[in-house]
């Protein structure tokens, strides 16, 4: 039980570190890494919840949910990484907040 709680805290810490990185780091690649950390933290908490105590058998539903979550996160990561490359290509830097005013300055498209 204690070990499980330790894993829970570990998942929480991963989530928090990811959150911190997502908000504070400037390079987009690092932001995406951070988002992946966050979801890993959530997965960890879900799987620990599935373990329960020794008497109760393992709950497969969180396992299925985490499998789904892993696939979802690789999908979004792939799209995000391509977008990062495009942002770098067009603005020469992979940063979200550009030096000029917030991306509103450009022409809007019809």
């Amino acid at each position: 039980m204690n070990t499980l709680f330790l894993y829970t805290m570990s998942g929480l810490a991963l989530f928090a570190i990811g959150l911190h990185g997502l908000i504070r780091s400037s390079h987009l690649l690092r932001k995406i890494l951070a988002a992946n950390l966050m979801s890993s933290g959530v997965f960890l908490i879900m799987i620990v919840g599935a373990c329960g105590t020794d008497q109760v058998m393992i709950d497969p539903v969180p396992h299925a949910m985490v499998l789904t979550g892993i696939v979802v996160s690789v999908s979004t990561t792939a799209v995000a990484l391509v977008l990062v490359c495009l942002v770098q290509e067009t603005t020469n830097r992979a940063l979200l907040w550009q030096k000029r005013k917030r991306g509103q300055g450009g022409r809007t498209d019809a």
Binding site: G103, Q104, D109
Partner: peptide, 10 residues
């Protein structure tokens, strides 16, 4: 458009 890509990223 670059602005759209940035907006999409955000």
């Amino acid at each position: 458009k670059p602005a759209a890509r940035l907006a999409a990223m955000r």
